[in-house]
Amino acid sequence: MNHLRTALLLSAAGLCSGLAHADTGKLLLTGGVSSIDGAAGGGLTPWAVIGTNATEGEVGFSAHVSRAATQDYSLNTMGVAVGFKDRVEVSLARQDLDASPATALNGLGFNVQAGQHVKMDVLGVKVKVAGDAVLDSDSWMPQIAVGVEQKSVDAGSITPVLDFLGAKTSGTDFYVSATKLFLGQSLLVNGTLRYTNANQNGLLGFGSKAPGKNEGSWVPEVSVAYLLNKNLAVGAEYRVKPNNLEALGRASGLASGLAEDAWQDLFVAWAPNKHASVTLAYLDLGRILPAITANRSQTGFYLSAQFAF
């Protein structure tokens, strides 16, 4: 994975140097922003749009940084993406989770280090297979894309906890997204169906030993965005999670202590020009390892900046 990350970063640097910049014809914000997994879309879920400013026949580049913070956790993300001819998107994201509350597990015999961070690399590929969100805005035909995200997590001193749960340290998500832009109504609607066995998006590993769920399952994700003007959009997202570990937690006497809830947000995205955008969101990520966070729902804020060419 380190070699893949290096290769993509070098490729992106080459693009950024002026060899293949896109002279965009895209409408502002209709290409989405960078999600936490790196793919273009909303902050929490991918859309069928191809990121960067590249239109047909062009190659484009984007980069983003973001931070999410709740009562008990914080997540920093950075990533890059390359868009080819408005048809193919390749993205890479690095997530860094401050998992300090996990030291509470030491009372159960683990040895989680104070200030432990969990890091995850996400390599994504998305391909547009039908439709065009802008050109087909006067019909009912959505833009449709299929994607894959290969995830690899480094849990540090939390790795023995993943072993106890029967969770693997790598996994692959598959998804199909349909994005419909109603240009006359300034409304964008996206639906994504994801096949995954990731726990908390993969930051808590993938799958579970019995009686938890180890195999993947299909879960829906929905986004709605309203363009107040060409530079400003507001919207909401809802992402269902597979909840693989709750049954294992109940069998282990933890009640709902390993439950995983849906993620949701309310966001505002501002694009002062075609090369930059800023997204601010209010997050409700539900319970994340409620056994060690007093069953608190993790609410907070998300801030992301993206630069695209």
Rank of each mutant, 00 (worst) to 15 (best):
P160I: 06
L188E: 05
V134M: 08
G147V: 11
A167Q: 05
D132G: 06
S157R: 12
R194Q: 07
N197V: 04
I158V: 15
N190M: 10
A178Y: 00
V189F: 14
G171R: 00
K180P: 11
S186L: 08
A178K: 02
G156R: 03
K128V: 07
S170A: 14
D132E: 08
L135V: 12
Q143R: 00
L165M: 06
K180W: 04
L135M: 13
Y195F: 15
T196A: 09
K151P: 04
K151S: 00
L187D: 05
G171F: 09
T196F: 11
M141H: 08
A167G: 02
G156V: 06
S157H: 01
A130H: 10
L187H: 05
M141K: 06
F174G: 00
A130L: 15
F164I: 02
N190W: 02
V129F: 03
F164P: 00
A155M: 09
V189L: 15
L183Y: 12
L183P: 06
S177V: 07
V146G: 12
L193R: 06
A133N: 00
V134S: 01
A167M: 09
S177Y: 08
L193Y: 07
T169M: 08
S152T: 13
L188K: 11
I158P: 08
L187K: 04
E149N: 15
L193P: 05
G184K: 03
L162I: 06
L162S: 01
S177E: 03
Y195E: 06
T179L: 12
F182K: 10
A155Y: 09
L183K: 15
L165W: 05
L135E: 12
D154A: 15
L181H: 10
Y175L: 05
L183I: 10
A155G: 10
A133V: 15
K168S: 13
E149W: 06
L135S: 13
V153N: 08
G147Y: 03
R194D: 04
G191S: 02
G171W: 06
G191Q: 04
N190R: 12
G191E: 01
A145K: 04
S186A: 10
T169E: 14
V146Q: 08
V146E: 02
A145N: 05
A130M: 11
R194M: 14
A167V: 10
L183M: 15
T172C: 01
